[in-house]
Each structure stands twice: as C-alpha cells, then as structure tokens.
Amino acid sequence: MQIPETPPNETARLLMLHSLQILDTIPEERFDRLTRMTKRFFDVPIAVISLVDANRQWFKSCFGLSASETPRDISFCGHAILRDDVFIIPDALEDPRFADNPLVTGEPNIRFYAGCPLRIANSINVGTLCIIDNKPRSFNANDGKLLCDLADKVVDEFRVHRISTIDELTHISNKRGFLQIGNTTLKFCIDHSLAAFLVFIDLDNFKRINTAYGNAEGDRMLEEFAATLKVSFRGSDLIGRLGGEMFVVLVIGEDKENTDQFIHKVAEDIRVRYQNTDRPYIVEFSYDTVEVRRDRHASLDQVIAERDALMQTQKVAIR
C-alpha cells in the first residue's frame, strides 16, 4: 500500500482547512443535497465530501458509508489532494498503490474511486468531492467535468459560510471572523509549537479626517489601509478589522523582532503610497505587539481583553 505524500504547502493547507470552521460540525442539508445529487448523477453507492485533516479524512457529508472519518494514511483522498485534476482509480485491485489497502480488502471494498479536489484560494486543496463503487467502472472526460462542476458547488457553499465573517468595506475578516479563524489557528500553533503574536493597529486622527473630508474619503482610507496590510504581511498571517479604525493581525511562526519588521514595512508602504498623491492629510498609525502565550491565554478573546486594559502603557507610535 502506498501512503499519500504530504503536500508541499501542508502548513498553509491545514491553516486554510481549519479556518473554514467546518471540521466536526453537524450535518447540513446544503452539503447533503450536493452529495445526494452526486450519488444520483453517477449511480454509485457512495458519495462523500471529504476534508483531509492532519491525520484523518473527515466526512462533512457522506451517503453510503457509516463511518464519519478514516485515517489519512489509508485514504484515497489523501492522494487526490495532491493533484490539480480528478484522481481516478478504475479498479483498485489492479492498482499496486491500493490493492492491499484495508479499504479495498475490507469494508467498504473499494474498487472504483474518483475524487475532485476542493480548491480554496491560492490553489489550496482542503479535501475532495468523491464517488466510490464496489465494482470496477470507467470514467470519461464528461464524467470528470460533471464531478468538477459539483465540487465547485461545494466550494461555493464554503464561501457562503465565510461571507458572514468578512468585513464588507475592507474585504478582510470582521471581528467575528477573526476570532473564529484566529482561535482555530491559535490551537494549531499550540499543537505544532509555533510562536504567535497579535499586532493591534489603530489609525491615528481618523475621526478628525473623516469629519473634515467626509465619510467617503474615510472609507477610502480604510480600504487602502487594509489593502496595504494584505501586501505587507504574509498570506499565512490573519488580518482583521475589529471595528472603526482598529485593525489586528495574527502573525504565526515568527519572533517579535521579525513581527515588528512587518509593521515597519507597512509604514514604508503607506509612505510610498501617499507620497505622490494630493491627499490633504497624512496617514499615520499606532501599534502594539502582544505575544500569545499558551500558559496564559486560552483564546484570542482573552488577549484582546488584556490588551484593551493595558493599551495606554504599551502603545508605540509610528510617524
């Protein structure tokens, strides 16, 4: 039996998977409807929405199987997420990678498998929409297109789930989304012994600028500042808007010195962005970096509350 290889972007992939806040949730009709459709369209006994976690594949929706998860090292989906296209096994008994797999030699006696990766932003495959049969079968290009179309519908449902956690103006996480995703990410950091820092950022004089030049200009300033944060930090860092002119960034896997370097990059990017404009104001901000400690902080909510109590003594201004 061949054990699935680990994707080169595994850390980012797991962060994205956990940020969806779907693992270990109760069954939902919007997902079950899609697996029912998939099962009917292909006339197979088993159809599954499978999410590939660190050591398991967990089934968000499953028709034809009694299990809710299986080990990742024996999963077919662990192989499927390594690909950009549909992963097809016409007859598992004839494939040396799977012939002695316990899912082939025992229940559910897999012979045929086809799985389309569930791809989120930046080409990250978090799982598959897959179909399984206990007898060999063929699978043509039209079949593959239909399975991919259905997989796209699954990903659309993931996006709908995330919309309620996105700030409408800046298109970054709102407070609710930041805490949902951030607390899951924090658990991941603790489990993998990764350092984590929260960077709190406040735009200086925002209310004065908003009053003097209008709400439209204030909104424009907030949008551009959020865009600067996204390019100044890394894709693996979580950026959120706590409300008003207050932003926060969860930086993982770096020490405080490197974390502060990201902030100085923000300041430089802001200076460059505005140096050749006719804006009648200067964009300035203040920031505060707090280490998230596993022996002290049970959640990001606790860190935010702690910071709010101490912000007057720990704030550092950039001009």
Rank of each mutant, 00 (worst) to 15 (best):
D149I: 06
D149A: 08
L150S: 04
D152P: 00
K153E: 15
K153D: 15
K153R: 08
V154F: 05
V155P: 00
D156Y: 05
D156K: 04
E157N: 12
R159E: 10
R159I: 12
V160L: 09
H161L: 15
I163Q: 09
T165L: 10
I166F: 03
D167L: 04
E168W: 02
L169S: 05
L169I: 08
I172Q: 00
N174S: 05
K175C: 03
R176H: 08
R176W: 01
G177W: 00
G177F: 00
Q180G: 01
I181D: 13
I181P: 05
N183C: 10
N183D: 15
T184I: 03
T185V: 11
L186D: 09
K187P: 08
C189V: 12
C189F: 08
C189T: 13
H192K: 14
A195F: 10
F197Q: 09
L198G: 07
L198Y: 04
I201V: 15
I201W: 01
L203R: 12
L203W: 04
N205E: 14
F206K: 08
K207L: 10
K207V: 14
I209L: 01
I209Q: 03
N210K: 12
N210M: 14
N210E: 13
G214Y: 07
G214L: 03
N215G: 13
N215T: 14
A216S: 15
G218M: 06
R220N: 14
E223F: 15
F225K: 08
A226V: 05
A226G: 06
A227S: 14
A227T: 15
T228S: 06
L229S: 12
V231R: 11
L238S: 02
R241K: 01
L242T: 09
L242Q: 11
F247T: 10
F247C: 08
V251H: 02
I252A: 02
I252N: 01
G253T: 08
G253K: 05
G253S: 06
E254W: 09
D255L: 12
D255Q: 07
D255N: 12
N258M: 06
T259G: 00
Q261M: 10
K265H: 09
V266L: 01
D269M: 13
I270T: 02
N276H: 04
D278T: 10
P280V: 10
P280C: 08
I282R: 07
